[in-house]
Write a protein that binds this DNA or RNA. Sequence first.
DNA 1: AACCCGGGGGA
DNA 2: TCCCCAGGGTT
Length: 392
Amino acid sequence: MPRKPAPRAVPPVPDDIRVPPDFGARVVDWQRLHGRHDLPWQNTRDPYRIWLSEIMLQQTQVSTVIEYFQRFVSQLPTVQALAAAPADQVMALWAGLGYYSRARNLHRCAMQVVSAHGGEFPSDPAVLATLPGIGRSTAAAIAAFSAGVRSPILDGNVKRVFARFFGMHGHPGERAVETRMWQLAEAALPAPGPRQAEDMIAYTQGLMDLGATVCSRGKPTCLMDAGACPLSADCVARRDGLTATLPTPKPRAAIPERSTVMLLVRREREVLLRLRPDSGVWGGLWSLPEMPVDTVPFDAEAAEEAALDYARAFGRPARATMTGELTHVFTHFRLLIRAIRVDVSTDPGSLMVQDSAAEAAQRWLSLDDLDALGTPAPVRRLLEDQARGGLF
DNA sequence: AACCCGGGGGA
DNA sequence: TCCCCAGGGTT
């Protein structure tokens, strides 16, 4: 049986972290007045129910979890019953919740609690986190709710509250941001004291409730009513008008890359430009003629051959040379532009007959007149580079 | 249609 | 050690 390693110990909190000394107390007081108190897994210290609810709540909303939770505990009321249940029954009770590895880990965890811990859940978060399906945050939540242990949680709700309250930029999924948030979570815990167990239960639940209700993603209540949030008075996001932009969203997935070959058809000191259709990229701008790239990987020699062929429409081509490449980034894709220079000489005999519409969409331009036409920025750069290189 | 979510497993 | 995935729900 592969053993799950215990998570690294929390690094010391750096000196530059400043948390108001009454942060925890404000969350605790708010929770007692305005938080949720009647969820089916509250008002108990039964670690089995607390653990089960935390696993169900990992990727699923409270409103969805409630009925699954009720059905689950009525059929399997104890960790011993769960450990002894057939996998089919466990999976059937989970069906519809999604993320089914959670159910398999749940079952394995119950068996380990019975076999390795005498059927009693540990109360030490570091030990809890060695069990399948229990990570650092879930371990802390179980320890806090079942035994009043002073240990920080950091789930999606808490990350949102922290990002706003402390004005932290950067996606919370980034390592550096998450590390800092764990340090903040450690520093923000209510002070240890005689009421620690009750406070930790209220504090842990309070952070979750605050993130789920007041400090929500879409329409945080403080935008309408600052008094609704116990942290609004010194919330950095609120002070700086960043409530709607924090936390920083996940960076968009890598955008696809396309490629094209542009032709620098040169005739003496002029280059051939082409008017792009009104719709699409660079609509209505004057750009260079493009050749479809159909060789993957790109084959420079073949492209030069094709360029010679292509340029016969504009004169007698002498030679074609790869002459540069650049990448242009759009919002939704990157365009790799390769440029091939084709020198042509005027030869009326070789000119193909063109209709007037095609004629109107192309023109020869001296590089000195570049300012006269609207040209896409990368094309402009390409032409200027050519001019600087003395090629025109 | 994009974005969200804790932990595990594979790169 | 880092990145990516899952799968149902919300926005």
